[in-house]
Design a protein around this nucleic acid. Sequence first.
RNA 1: GCCGGCGUAGCUCAGUAGGUAGAGCAUCUGAUUUGUAAUCAGAGGGUCGCAGGUUCAAUUCCUGUCGCCGGCUCCA
Length: 648
Amino acid sequence: MSSSYTITLPDGSQKQVPPGSSPLDVARAIGSRLADDAVVARVNGELWDLTRQFEDDSKLEILTSRSGDEALKVYRHSTAHLLAAAVLELYPGTKLGIGPAIESGFYYDFERETPFSTEDLEAIEKRMHAIRDRDVPYQRVLVEKQEGLKHYQELGESMKCELISEKASDIFTEYTLGEQFIDFCLGPHVPSTKRLKAFKLLSVSGAYFKGDQKRQQLQRIYGTAFFSQKELEEYLHRLEEAKRRDHRLLGKQLDLLSIQELAGPGLIFFHPKGALVRKQLEDWMREQYLARGYSLVNTPHVARESLWSVSGHLENYKESMFSGMELDDGVYRLKPMNCPMHILIYKDSPRSYRDLPVRLGELGNVYRYERSGTLHGLFRVRGFTQDDAHIFCTPEQIEDEITACLQFAVDTLKTYGFDRYKAELSTWDGGVSGKYLGSADQWKLAEDALHRATERVGLEVKVVPDEAAFYGPKIDVKLLDCLDRSWQLSTVQFDWNLPQRFELEYVGQDGEKHRPMMVHRALYGSVERFFGILLEHYAGAFPVWLAPVQAIVLPIADRHLEYAKTVVARLEAEGFRVELDARSEKVNFKIREAQLQKIPYMLVVGDREAELGKVGVRNRKHADQGAQNLDEFVATLKTLIEAKAVSE
RNA sequence: GCCGGCGUAGCUCAGUAGGUAGAGCAUCUGAUUUGUAAUCAGAGGGUCGCAGGUUCAAUUCCUGUCGCCGGCUCCA
């Protein structure tokens, strides 16, 4: 054993340390501030506890609260252990599931007969603070597997035993926290609880052990943790902000839509104002279809069950379909997808290679029997409208077609004011499992085409292997909204299943029959869902071109009503969506209501305006803009609408 | 579908240790004629989600059911 180890730091400098030294010792040697701020170490590329002793010459990097996600993840994972330790102190006999760090914090799963209440959560959080203040070290212990198993059995930790049997190697690591708490865990952790500065428990909910519906249901406590109180508070503010922007709340406040208990859950009623916004979304999409070489079609909402047998939906998608309707001539089903309908149109006439590509687009209403517990506002519904199109083409055309689809998707996002998005390319497993349909050649052709298309459009793409649909690879486009939340939107999917099932053909240049390539693509995904995303993104203040009411005229006194009416008439003649608030209320009152309705422009008209043919322009974001000639205002509004400006 | 919470006027919510309910806003009526985020007064409005059960009596307690919320699961 050498008398000292050489530790190499990221800047290339080296330090000699005696055996028994740990990364924390090195950090101290560099500076006490670094030691205080250190969270975890990276030793020879691996994350280590700061207090773990070096075993050889090593490369060392100290990760601090400024080192980004890795350090934060460790920190949160340690907080999860703190949570579990507090729960065991307060509720002895509770059994442990797993407790990982997740994107926005951490959770820990517990098995206990009595459910945790909100008050329990407060008590637990209090206890967490108490343990934190005791400054308890996280200690890493090496355990021999059989011995360890025995120990966890004695503790009655059956879930831990199961995890150890499955995952542990002959010698595994566990972490202790105080006298009571031990946990089978890879680590690493922060050195002691006093490092945990800012955390909060957020909610409790059910979760299955290992996510398996057949296993016991556990109670999952969610929380979050940050390096500083300030960051924690910012996060909590963001949650508040998200709540304020909740489309279910705004949908009601702005009288855009409702869900009616009498009609059934997951079914959306668009009220007049919501329907006006929706019309803009639909009109824009239909115009784009036509401008980009698609043909618009319309297809029925129900069809004979035999159609769904041929398509395979009855076989593979039955659980998500509404059950059948018995009619005189057999059973009919509501459509969960539009593809078979579009295929029937394709098949209705013989197709030549000269006809291809055939692009059939529709805003198609589909109905899916989503499980009751999954329904959520506009985001997860049972009846919705897909901006669905299917492209039938030759293998030679495929790359250009995909490229055009992706470009279309990006243009769509930009139009609605989203400038941050990313793409995911879901590929197959190379044929290993046999669960994918189609030949290696087919997959290669399709995946290559998808890849090249993303390059041509300049889309950053992440490849996710073995995530494709069984019938072909796909690209999903996700957007980030103003609160950094990610939403899946557009999808472009290959399909060699349906063309085969429906025996689609075209006559090639060689006079022979060939099977066309088929691509499903949806850009909004679901019009309802996209509406919800927009509503939250803009917090209800839709850009002028989408706003259900673009301007409201507010006469100051009844004697200005007549002039107000001429203003309304003029604006309506220009094609604007205008309202008049004719009530004998004070302007302040009318303004307040218009503000709350987030109407972009309020036009105050009194003696001064009536005399000069002007309007007093108030904008919802920039307040009083002063008096303008009506013509001037008309021109401004026109410009904004034509440009589809996202801010005014 | 599963676990937990919730369901009182159009909306937001209070209340009843079991004796059929109240506020603010909204609505209606009247007064007010108003200059950039709430004028005043009066009136109407509820089978306390729905169905059973316990009870002299249920909105309140129990059971079931429907719906909503937070998650899980699912997302061909």
